[in-house]
Structures are given as structure tokens and as C-alpha cells.
Design a protein around this nucleic acid. Sequence first.
DNA 1: AATACGCTTGCATACGTATTCAAATTAATT
DNA 2: AATTAATTTGAATACGTATGCAAGCGTATT
Lengths: 338, 338
Amino acid sequence: MNKTPSSVDVAKAAGVSQSMVSRAFTPGSSINPDKRALIIAKAKELGYRPNIMARSMITKKSKIIGFVFGYLENQYYPLALEKMSREFQAKGYHSLMFFSDNQSSADDIVQEFLQYQIDAVVLASVSLSSDWIDACNSLSVPVVLFNRAIKTDDVTSVTSANYEGGKTVARYLVETGHKRISYISGFVESSTNKDRERGLNDGLEDHGMTLFSVESGNYDQEQARKATLDMFSSDKAETPDALFVASDHMAFSVLETLRYELGLRVPEDVSVIGYDNVPLGAAPSYNLTTMSQPVDDMVSHTVNAVMSRIAQPSLKPERIEIPSHLIQRKTVKNRLLS
Amino acid sequence: MNKTPSSVDVAKAAGVSQSMVSRAFTPGSSINPDKRALIIAKAKELGYRPNIMARSMITKKSKIIGFVFGYLENQYYPLALEKMSREFQAKGYHSLMFFSDNQSSADDIVQEFLQYQIDAVVLASVSLSSDWIDACNSLSVPVVLFNRAIKTDDVTSVTSANYEGGKTVARYLVETGHKRISYISGFVESSTNKDRERGLNDGLEDHGMTLFSVESGNYDQEQARKATLDMFSSDKAETPDALFVASDHMAFSVLETLRYELGLRVPEDVSVIGYDNVPLGAAPSYNLTTMSQPVDDMVSHTVNAVMSRIAQPSLKPERIEIPSHLIQRKTVKNRLLS
DNA sequence: AATACGCTTGCATACGTATTCAAATTAATT
DNA sequence: AATTAATTTGAATACGTATGCAAGCGTATT
């Protein structure tokens, strides 16, 4: 019989008590180094690894991080997921996936977490209502928002400096001589979107300008296409000379629509600027000017935040903002020259 | 005190034994329907959900599926991941992520699985050696290969009909008058790649032709770029008039390289055909002709395969092949016309 | 009416580990 | 050498659930 060995089997083989085996695998516990080595050796020989399930019953720690995503379409998210998972994996944690849909409530998903004794939750591409925060706070589990934030100060979040990002875009577009600047928004309720839009508006105001028009793309390519078509429909007397699109993902769709459906040239007829700096934006076919949201920084800060509040749950929530900067490529034209 | 309630608490509240509570949550167990309803009601009232960890100690089932990925860069994989996870989620299972790297061996990762009492393993974008199969077979855990296969018949795999796909490509390119057909391969060791290449070769042979040249892109965009540059380097007397690229992901890079680095027109100067039919291929900027690998079919067959061998572990492994078909878009030119 | 049977229920136990507490050993101090 | 302090060790218990077993009860069968 080839049953998976337990700590009792190892104990028997090493001639010690089960307690010793447990201690051998618990860093920093009181045990003779020689014995520990012996036990580890015997364990390896038998192919023993501590059973996380049994362990979690005692410690109430599962070494599992719950990830909630709404979608993985926008390349930014799978890349972030991979990086985060790898970092957690290196620390002995693993990621359990939860995908949200419009059927099941936040509460339902949070209930599912409970069953798995998740050590922490990372909320990523989910359109979160206050339900989420309530549900998570009622849990005693640390929650970190990735690329999302909420007005109230009672949960930790990691975002880029979206407000400043919006302002940067405004200044850049104004300084390159654009007069009719429009915004294709993300999910209107999301903090990320709101902050970018507010930054854009404030930035324009600084230069005595105002937004030409806004439409929602809802972080979706098809809706972004519709928004674009609408902004340039034939019944419009004037059309934008610059489009700020709330994500690269939508910006690609906008570019395609402008070029191949509306027959407009980018950047000659319209400038386009995105947000995220996804790898695809660097492809010559797009060459998208955009605001970077450094994935590596975002991820490492998220991981740190999670780890530190697993270690110390009473830590007060903080709002972490990663600086965002302009990536100049070829979809914005300086209209002051020539 | 707001401790999470246990079955004992619910039992107390409902005036029954803990066993009854357990049975109330165990479908098909012997219990009076009225009592069950009462218990469920009380449980809901207290906010009780069975603790999966404790349950798995008895049942040896964790309701967790282990996913192994090597990368998520190729959009095909995050999309497949999302769909699979959602389907498993609907069945009460959840996905635990494992990312492979070149440091840690297959054995190490398999050992990590063991700790979590995973119910099944899905291997996806991992470049698998026979180590993997050995390691997994030594486990008593069902393994299903997604978009991968191995020569030996001792593990279940779900792939598209790669061999026929390769043949279809050959026939199509020949029938559209191409004379110098080259192949930019994926990871040369992978079954997927081998089958496509073999199909391509056999298909060409059927028409009395032979492959013009081959280079490895290793499923990586940068290596695909290098391969392309090499195939069209100035010291070549003749260059290909058609390129079959083993994945859309690489094909995008190949298109960019041909157009913007080599100044060639696609499809006028060179035809390009990919594999996967990733959403991005439909974007007008690429309009990539490709072989579809229907994600939905692949995913649902994978999920079914997993579920059926969780239910019946003795089931003999099977090799599932999903038909693949040609998606004609704009990167292949019929050279017999005009 | 008496036996058999099927359906419900509670008791007790097992799963594999961490941890408290006291016992036992070793090292340090006088 | 004797006492104290420090370090190791093992026995026992708890975590939250599922399940085999026997007991209870009501209904159907003869």
C-alpha cells in the first residue's frame, strides 16, 4: 500500500514523537538541530509533506490567498495575476481563483472564501460595490484592493496615481495644441475611472479649458467602439481632436474603429492616449501613447501589503499610490508644429 | 464575540446532534426533509458554511483543482483559465494556481499539490517533460493535459486536432498557389507543435511539395521575431512566400516584423497563417488568417474529463481531439488569381 | 398481534496536525 | 558538587467535520 505518510509515520521511522515531527517543520520552534535534521531526512525519505488542511484546522491559516476577478480580457490583469501568484508562491502561499459574475452577490462569494479559510483576499478586476467592502469587513480576513479604491478609508488599496495621471494627460494634450479633448471612460462607478476623469477635468481647467465630451466605454472593447462611433457620427458639427481612453484595452478598439470604420488617421486627424501601458501597445501597429501603470511596482506593493497584514491584522488600512508616467509613442501629434 | 460558527453551534441552535447538521449538508444522506430544511434555515441564520478543510480531512476531497501554467502571455491561456475556472466554480470547485519556472522541478510542484489535497490537476501552458507525467502518476490524483499531449497513452489529454490542422494549412496554402512555405515552430518538444509540423509536412507531401524552411519561435514573440528576420535576411537567395506560424501570439509578432522591420507587405509579398484564433486576430490591424482552436469546446471537454475521473478514478485515460477549422481573413493571398 | 423492515437519529470515533503543560534532560552558575 | 536556569521532549488535547454502528420509531407484512 502506498498511502501518503503522516507525521505519525515519520515519527515512528525516526524514533521520536509526533510532536517532534511537527516541531521539525515549524520554523523557530524549540527542537534540537540534530534531531530536526534527522527528522527532515526521514521525512524526505518517506516522501512526507505536512498536510496543509490538517494544519489549517489548528492554526486557522491556510496559506491560501483568494483572488477575485471579474474578467481577464484586459491583458493587464493576467500579467498581474501571474506576477502576484509567483511572488506569493515564492513565499509559500498559493492563489485560489474566484470569478465574479452578475448572478451571484458579493456575499455569496465571500461565503465561499470562508469555507476555504482564506488568509487574505485580493480584489482585482471586479466592479465592486460597497457590498464587497461590507462583506469583507464582516470577515476577519485582510482585504487588499488591486487597481481599485474606495472613498472610505477602511480598506487597503493599491492603485496608480490616477488623479495625477489624468492631470498629466490633460497637460500633455493641451501643450501639444489640442482644442477638443474627449474622454472615453471606464466603468463609471469605479474609483480608478473617477480619479482619472477628475484629474483630466482639473488639468484642463488649469489651462482654462473644459472637456469636449465624455462617453462610457465601461472597460469593454465593444462599448468603446460604440462610444467612438457616436462621438464621430455624421450629425456632429464638431468632433474631438484628441481622445483620452481610460484603458489601453479600450484604446486598441478605439484605434481600430477610428482607422478602419471611420477612415480617420491617427494621430493626424485625432490623437489617442491610453492608460496602463500594456505590452501590446508597443507593437508598431498600435504604437500607443499611454500612461504607464508599472505592473511590477503595483504587484510588489500589493504582495507586501497582504503579507504585512496577515502578520499583523490590526494594521490600519492604507492607500498606496504608485506614480504613473507618460509613455510617448506615436498616437499623439503636436499640433503646434507645422 | 463573532467567531465563525461550527456545525456544533448549528446543532445546538436547532436542537439536534452535530451528525444531523453534517447530514443536512451532505446531499443524498439519510435525513428527514423537514429537519434538513430547519437545519439549513438555522445555519443560514447563524451564517454557517461547512469548513472545507475539516471536511477534506475525512473525505480526502478538497474541492480544489490544481492548475499549472508556465505563462499567461498568450491570450489563449488566460481566456481558457477564466472559462475553466468559471465552469468549475459552478460545480462547487475552485482553482488553485501553480506557476512553473525553470528553477523548481516538476516533482517540487507536485509535492506542493500533495499538501493541498488537490482533487485533480490540469496542466496547461507548461512545457512538460516526462518528469511531469511520472510525478503525477505517482500521485493518485487525476491529471488532464490541456492543449498538450504525450506519446504514451497513460494520461488524459485535450487538444485540438493538430495533425489535421497542419494538413489543412498545407492544403490551403498549396491551393492558393504558394511555392515556398516555411514554418515558425512553437516549443519544439511540445506535442502540439510536433503534430502541427508533421501535419504540415505530410500535407505538403500529398501535393508533391516539401517545406521550404523551419525555425523555432518557441511560442515566444521575441524569438518569433528573430526567426522571421533570419528567414528574410539579405544573404538568402530565396525567401518564403508563406509563413505558417505555430500560434497567433507569435504570428502577431511575425506580422509586425515583416511589415515594420522588413518593409514587406502581407499578404502581397508574404502570406501568414496562425493557430489558435485568439480574439485579437480579428482586429482589423491584424486580420489574421488562422486555424481555430475553439476555446469553449476545449474547456468543456477538459472540465468533463476532470469531473468524470474525479468520480471514477479508475477510468482509463483518453485522448480527446477537438476539430480545428480554418478561419479565412486577410493575411493569405490567393496567388493563382491575378 | 407479532414480526420484519425501512427510515431517522445520536454516539462515538477518526482524519493529521499544532500546541499547552509538565517531565526530563542538559548546561550554567555558585 | 549542588542548585538553578535553560533547553528538549512526550503525552494529551483540540480543531470541525463525516461516517459506521446501534438504537429508536413507525409502517407494512404475514
